Simulated scan of single mutants.
Amino acid sequence: MAEAYKDQEFVEYAVKALVNHPEDVRTERTVDDRGVLITLHINQDDMGYIIGRQGQTARALRILLKTVGAKENARVNLKIFEPDELRREHQERKSQSVGGSATHGEAGMVTDQDLADLGI
């Protein structure tokens, strides 16, 4: 990270405290006319820790990040990067372990719509 930004440092600090592979945590910060977007890259094994049950951890991180950004008069958003093929593989494995008969939503799993609602 060439220049230190409080919002980006906050995300890295908080996420590294939550995951099992803190060495794999990295962020990308982009600024455009809509504000600041921080894209979070983590080890795929840690995805569940960051999203949390029903997206609660991700939602909490976003709320705290918006508060950090508000102190600097910036609109800050967080995107959790997950390659499409890994998401598809994960959903297929989970549906097989549940028995394959229930859909993701019925099995208590996070659905694609849940992730879209969270902006993930």
Rank of each mutant, 00 (worst) to 15 (best):
M1R: 12
M1I: 10
M1W: 04
M1Q: 12
A4V: 13
Y5E: 05
D7P: 00
Q8D: 14
E9L: 13
F10G: 02
V11Q: 04
V11K: 03
Y13S: 15
Y13K: 15
Y13Q: 14
A14V: 15
A14S: 13
K16Y: 08
A17C: 08
A17I: 00
L18M: 15
V19Q: 11
N20M: 08
P22H: 05
P22Y: 01
P22F: 03
D24Y: 03
D24N: 04
V25Y: 01
V25D: 01
E28I: 11
E28F: 10
R29C: 04
R29E: 07
T30V: 10
T30M: 06
T30Y: 01
T30Q: 13
T30S: 14
R34G: 04
R34D: 13
G35N: 09
V36G: 00
L37H: 07
L37T: 12
I38S: 00
I38W: 00
I38A: 01
T39N: 05
L40G: 05
H41N: 08
H41I: 03
I42D: 02
I42T: 00
N43K: 06
N43R: 04
N43E: 03
D45H: 08
D46M: 08
D46A: 09
D46K: 10
M47E: 11
M47V: 15
G48T: 00
G48D: 06
G48W: 07
Y49T: 05
Y49N: 11
G52Y: 02
R53F: 10
G55H: 01
T57F: 01
A58C: 08
R59Y: 09
L61M: 06
R62K: 15
R62D: 02
I63W: 03
I63T: 13
I63G: 00
K66N: 11
K66F: 02
K66T: 07
K66Y: 04
T67P: 01
V68Y: 07
G69Y: 06
A70P: 03
K71T: 05
K71I: 08
K71S: 05
N73V: 08
N73G: 01
A74Q: 15
N77F: 12
N77Q: 13
K79L: 13
I80L: 10
E82H: 13
P83W: 09
D84T: 13
D84F: 06
R88G: 08
R88Y: 15
R88M: 14
E89A: 12
E89I: 10
Q91V: 05
Q91P: 00
E92S: 10
E92I: 13
R93P: 04
K94E: 14
K94Q: 15
S95H: 12
S97E: 14
S97A: 12
V98E: 14
V98M: 12
G100C: 05
A102W: 10
A102C: 06
H104E: 14
A107I: 01
A107Y: 02
G108H: 08
M109E: 05
M109T: 00
M109L: 14
D114E: 07
A116N: 11
A116I: 11
L118G: 02
L118Y: 03
L118N: 03
L118A: 00
G119I: 10
G119C: 08
I120T: 07
I120M: 15
I120W: 12
